[in-house]
Simulated assay, not measured.
Amino acid sequence: MSRRRHLVLETIYDPDEVGNGPADLDLVLVHGLNGDYEKTWTHEKTKVFWPRDLLPKKQPHTRVLSFSFNADIWGNTSVAGIRENARALLATLSDEREELEENERPIVFLAHSLGGLVVKQALCTASIETQYLPIAFATRGLMFYGTPHAGAEQDRWLAIAKSFAPLAPPARGRSRVSALVEALETNSKDIAGICEDFRCRARNYAIVSFFETFAWPGTSSTIVGRMSALMNLDHEDQVPLDAHHMDLCRFESERDPAFKRTYLRIKKAAKGNLSNGGQAGAGMGGGVTYNQYVIYGGQPPKAV
């Protein structure tokens, strides 16, 4: 059995490679805990991998990339390594957009569960590091599926850690709480800081937050409840889905209502936060592109 690759950005669909011309949008998928670049987005019964099997039919000019990182619950420090994984995401995405004309191609990030924290940290880093500024400027929208947004309240993060326990019960022969819960509790202060740092940048992007309405099988509660899955921003699109935590971003077929809600919001998110000008980098450089930002020496052009 071949070893699964980590810290790479897999190309799921490239319109240029199939004769549909250059891409006009990069959709970047980021999985969560116990997921990977493919199975997180694949329906268990129908085996439909919607980023490859469904989305290109609706959006043939959208390039789809999926980030792969070690998110196994046991035997690694994936939760503690949010900052490291975020930096790897930026590095791999930057490599895929190295041509000058690619700097201005809009980006929409689509993240499941704690993968949303990796995206948040990545954008916080990108906004202050010169080499990654093109990504910060090009990002138009963020779509979160069951991502906990607990802000800076460490006590709430401790409660969220316990809610994830059903996803990773203790291994056979172990009576202690799962490694996932321990990691979340240990790093709750750090994770809370990431969420608080991102909140002041959230107005730069269109924000879509999907939340689960089905309890986790065998329990009477959701993994990430509505109050945790929402940022409660004025421009946030809050969308309930009839699914439990792991099925939020898996779609049975093209007729699945949840898939329709997803691809329509990808189109909207690609336009940016319309209440903030709807342009990439609107909150960073006055709505200018990265190339204009460089030309004007790090300042937005003066109004004519």
Results as ranks from 00 to 15, higher is better:
F211T: 00
P60I: 03
H6M: 10
L93I: 04
G297Q: 14
P51R: 00
T186H: 12
H235R: 12
Y296V: 05
V48W: 02
L142H: 04
N34D: 15
A136S: 10
W74H: 15
Y132L: 01
G75R: 09
L248T: 04
V8L: 11
E99T: 09
T130L: 14
R140K: 13
H149C: 12
L180V: 06
R261V: 03
G281Y: 02
R203E: 07
E153D: 15
F214N: 15
R203C: 13
D197S: 15
R172C: 02
T289W: 05
R97V: 06
I295C: 08
G225K: 13
A152S: 15
E182I: 10
V8W: 10
I160W: 02
S113E: 05
Y263D: 03
E98Q: 15
V118P: 06
Q292G: 03
P169V: 07
P300A: 13
R4G: 06
S221L: 09
A282E: 03
W41D: 00
A206F: 07
F259S: 00
A23D: 08
E196T: 15
D24Q: 14
S113I: 09
K45Q: 07
M284V: 12
F67N: 07
A161W: 02
T147K: 01
A282D: 11
L248K: 08
M227E: 15
R3D: 10
C249W: 02
A111Q: 06
P166E: 01
T92L: 05
S220R: 10
S68P: 04
A23V: 12
A86R: 01
V108T: 03
Y13F: 11
S228Y: 04
G218A: 11
Q154L: 11
G298P: 02
P148L: 08
P22Y: 09
G141R: 04
F210C: 11
L241N: 04
L100D: 07
N34I: 00
H6C: 05
L133W: 07
N232R: 12
N291W: 13
V119H: 06
A138S: 15
S94E: 11
Q238N: 14
S94A: 09
R140P: 10
A122D: 11
C124E: 01
T147D: 02
R4S: 05
N85A: 06
E185P: 10
T289G: 06
S94Y: 03
V208F: 10
T46R: 00
F164K: 02
L65Y: 04
S178H: 01
T42S: 11
K39C: 08
T92W: 03
N204F: 03
T139P: 07
G283V: 06
S175P: 04
L110E: 03
E99C: 12
R3M: 15
M1R: 13
D26S: 13
T46S: 13
N291K: 12
N204Q: 09
N232F: 08
P300V: 03
I107K: 01
R199T: 13
T40F: 04
I194L: 14
W157L: 14
A202Y: 06
I191E: 07
L25K: 09
V181Y: 03
S163N: 14
G116D: 05
G298R: 07
